[in-house]
Simulated scan of single mutants.
Amino acid sequence: MKYVAERKLLFSEKGGQCTKELVIKISEPFVVNQNDVKFPTDGVTSGCHVEIEGLDESGFNLYGMDSLQAINLASNVEPLLERLSNKYDFFWLTGEPYFDE
Rank of each mutant, 00 (worst) to 15 (best):
Met1Thr: 13
Tyr3Asp: 01
Val4Met: 14
Val4Arg: 11
Ala5Lys: 15
Ala5Trp: 15
Glu6Ile: 05
Arg7Phe: 11
Lys8Glu: 13
Leu9Ser: 03
Leu9Gln: 08
Leu10Glu: 11
Ser12Trp: 07
Glu13Trp: 10
Glu13Asn: 13
Gly15Thr: 08
Gly15Leu: 03
Gln17Phe: 14
Cys18Glu: 13
Cys18Asn: 12
Thr19Leu: 03
Lys20Ile: 01
Glu21Thr: 15
Glu21Asp: 13
Glu21Pro: 07
Glu21Met: 14
Ile24Gly: 00
Ile24Trp: 05
Lys25Glu: 14
Pro29Thr: 07
Phe30Asp: 01
Val31Lys: 12
Val32Tyr: 01
Val32Ser: 00
Gln34Met: 08
Gln34Tyr: 04
Gln34His: 10
Gln34Val: 04
Asn35Tyr: 13
Asn35Arg: 14
Asp36Ile: 05
Lys38Thr: 12
Phe39Thr: 02
Pro40Thr: 10
Pro40Gln: 11
Thr41Asn: 04
Gly43Asp: 06
Gly43Ile: 04
Val44Ile: 14
Thr45Asn: 00
Cys48Val: 08
Val50Cys: 05
Gly54Phe: 05
Asp56Lys: 11
Glu57Leu: 09
Glu57Arg: 07
Gly59Asn: 06
Gly59Asp: 04
Asn61Val: 09
Tyr63Thr: 02
Gly64Lys: 06
Met65Ser: 15
Asp66Arg: 02
Ser67His: 12
Ser67Leu: 04
Gln69Val: 07
Ala70His: 09
Ala70Lys: 03
Leu73Pro: 04
Ala74Arg: 09
Ala74Gln: 02
Ala74Phe: 07
Ala74Lys: 05
Ser75Met: 14
Ser75His: 04
Ser75Gly: 15
Pro79Lys: 02
Pro79Arg: 00
Pro79Ser: 00
Leu80Lys: 01
Leu80Ala: 01
Leu84Lys: 08
Ser85Val: 03
Ser85Trp: 04
Asn86Ile: 03
Asn86Thr: 04
Lys87Cys: 02
Lys87Glu: 09
Asp89Tyr: 02
Trp92Ala: 06
Leu93Glu: 13
Leu93Gly: 00
Thr94Asp: 15
Gly95Thr: 01
Gly95Asp: 04
Glu96Tyr: 06
Tyr98Asp: 05
Glu101Ala: 07
Glu101His: 12
Glu101Gln: 11
